[in-house]
């Protein structure tokens, strides 16, 4: 039974991807733009979850990787590089950045970690504004214009799929197990010989990679970005809310969350002329109030998810140590 569930899950995902890949040929040209943004947010949510869910550190600064990736790509594109040499550059820079900040930041825990990382996004936003010669300052930066809707759509689909695979590989690996153990009790994990500092840093670096790549594709698609658009509140908080709402610590959570939020927003924003933001707020309040474990942990959805055999992740967070919060 369990094996069958797994097979079913993978075939559904594959079918979904095939459908999405065929979307441009079915005449849904708005769907392409729509799914593009959904995939960007989903990739951010899923890569956030490697640190936020697997490791249990709430990294509110995840958008800094996205923004760094976007700006690096934009600058390289303007220097005459093509996208495929610019993206690795963006990736390397973001990973190096993650490595540098991981040591000081991981000395903090709980709300302190969350707020310090959030401060980091603002810090980079200010730097982007001030280093006008490099980044174009608050005026933003435009890349060579052109209609990249279709190629960027396929690229982002590929990256999103790749991130899903990556996330699943980590969840199944010994490394992932170590991350879970740090989440459950860092002191105990250390005592049992888990190299916590190294693994925490690695997790951050790994989570920075998809975010920065997606940032690069995003700027290629938009052909213009400003600091506000890649470091702002919308891009910083939305993916995290998606991950939380779907359910953190399990790969399917961010997927459910991203699809759910994007659908709800699309409905409210196009069909409800006034108070749509208030309604969206109400949805968040209700979900937080009644299902803080996320959508995938609702009582009648849980068995369904468990049957898909994505590991026991659904049952985590039963007894996370109280020490995590100061």
């Amino acid at each position: 039974m369990s094996r069958g569930g797994k097979k079913l899950f993978y075939s559904v995902v594959l079918l979904l991807w095939a459908f999405l890949a065929a979307l441009p040929f079915l005449g849904f040209s708005y769907g392409v733009v729509w799914v593009f943004l959904l995939a960007v947010y989903f990739t951010l949510a899923l890569s956030y979850d490697i640190v936020g869910g697997y490791l249990g550190y709430m990294n509110l600064g995840h958008a800094s990787f996205f923004g760094l990736g976007a700006y690096t790509t934009a600058i390289l594109l303007n220097q005459g590089f093509n996208l495929f040499s610019a993206l690795p550059g963006a990736m390397l820079l973001a990973a190096a950045f993650a490595a540098v900040i991981s040591y000081p930041l991981f000395r903090l825990r709980g709300a302190y970690f969350a707020l310090a990382t959030f401060g980091l996004v603002s810090l980079i936003e200010v730097l982007t504004n001030n280093l006008r010669d490099l980044t174009g300052g608050s005026g933003g930066i435009s890349t060579p214009p052109g209609d990249h809707t279709l190629p960027s759509y396929y690229l982002v689909l590929a990256v999103a799929g790749g991130t899903m695979v990556l996330s699943q590989i980590i969840a199944r690996s010994k490394f992932g197990l170590a991350l879970f153990s740090i989440r459950e009790d860092e002191e105990v994990a250390k005592a049992f010989g888990v190299p916590t500092t190294l693994y925490k840093g690695l997790a951050l670096i790994i989570s920075s990679v998809p975010a920065s790549v997606v940032g690069g594709i995003y700027v290629w698609h938009m052909t213009y970005i400003s600091p506000e658009s890649v470091f702002g509140l919308e891009i910083a908080l939305s993916p995290i809310i998606m991950a939380m709402l779907g359910g953190t610590g399990i790969m399917i959570g961010p997927l459910v969350g991203a699809v759910f939020i994007t659908l709800v927003q699309e409905f409210l924003w196009t069909k409800v002329p006034y108070f749509h933001l208030a309604m969206y707020g109400t949805v968040l309040v209700l979900l937080g109030r009644f299902m803080p474990g996320g959508l995938v942990r609702i009582r009648w959805i849980r068995p369904f998810i468990q049957r898909l055999d994505l590991g026991e992740a659904v049952d985590y967070f039963r007894n996370v140590d109280a020490e995590r919060m100061p």
Partner: peptide, 9 residues
């Protein structure tokens, strides 16, 4: 998680 979702909402 709940407090962030609730207060944000």
């Amino acid at each position: 998680v709940a407090s962030i979702l609730v207060t944000m909402g």
